[in-house]
Structure formats: C-alpha cells, structure tokens
Computed example of a mutant assay.
Amino acid sequence: MGEQKRKIAAKQKSFIFEAKNYKFMLIGIAFIAIGFILMMGGGSDDPTVFNPEIYSWRRIRLAPALILIGFGIEVYAILLNPHKEK
C-alpha cells in the first residue's frame, strides 16, 4: 500500500516555485530592466566631441542602484519559502 502512494506522489508534477516566488521574480526583473534603460544614452555621434552627460547622476548612481536592488529581489524570490507560516 505504501509503495503505491510513493509511485503516485512521484508521478505528480509540481513546480519548484509558487506564484508568490514568480511575482517577486517579475518585480526584480522589472527593477533590473529599468536600471539598464536608465543607463542607456549619453554618447556622442562624433567621436571627437566629449559629452559630459555620460557622467550624469542618473547613469552613475541611480541606474546601478536599481540593478543591484533588482538582483537582491531576485535572490529573495529564489530563497522565499511560500509554505512557511509567519
């Protein structure tokens, strides 16, 4: 009798993560994408002309901070145990 239950349990497919994990993963991906979008631009079409806009606060401070926050959220989403009751 116990062997049949193990076979049935082995055949049942389940996801590693649940909806709560995927929600946090999508939030983390959104932070990372926004960070890379904010980092774009600031270049110059003429290589002999320097554009100081490449060193703007948005590209040097804000965008990398958003990317690191996004990676932190991704780690949290992977380590999150949705079955744990608080």
Rank of each mutant, 00 (worst) to 15 (best):
I54K: 10
K5R: 14
E18K: 07
R6P: 12
F50D: 00
K20Y: 12
F71D: 00
N51K: 00
K23D: 03
H83I: 00
M1R: 05
E74Y: 07
V75S: 06
Q12M: 13
G42I: 09
P52F: 07
T48M: 13
Q4E: 06
I29N: 02
N21S: 05
M39R: 13
S44I: 05
I34E: 01
D46A: 03
E18P: 06
A77W: 07
M25Q: 08
D45R: 10
E18F: 14
I8W: 13
L66D: 05
A65E: 05
A77Q: 05
A63D: 02
E18V: 03
S14D: 13
I67C: 03
L38S: 05
I27A: 10
F24E: 02
Q12K: 11
K23F: 14
D46G: 07
A10L: 08
G72W: 12
T48H: 13
F15G: 02
E85D: 13
I16G: 08
A19C: 11
G72I: 01
M39Y: 11
K7Y: 10
Q4V: 04
D45C: 02
A33E: 11
L79F: 08
G28C: 06
L38R: 04
K7E: 11
P47F: 12
R6G: 05
F17K: 04
F24P: 03
S44G: 09
I78T: 01
A10R: 09
Y22A: 01
E18W: 15
G35H: 04
R6T: 07
M25A: 01
F31V: 03
D45S: 13
I54H: 11
E53L: 12
P82D: 00
I32Q: 09
V75C: 11
I69C: 08
K86Y: 15
V49C: 06
F31I: 00
G28T: 08
E3H: 14
I27G: 02
I37D: 01
Y76P: 02
L38V: 06
E74R: 00
K23E: 07
G35V: 09
I78M: 01
S56Y: 10
I73P: 01
N81G: 05
K7L: 15
I16W: 14
I54R: 07
M1E: 13
I32D: 01
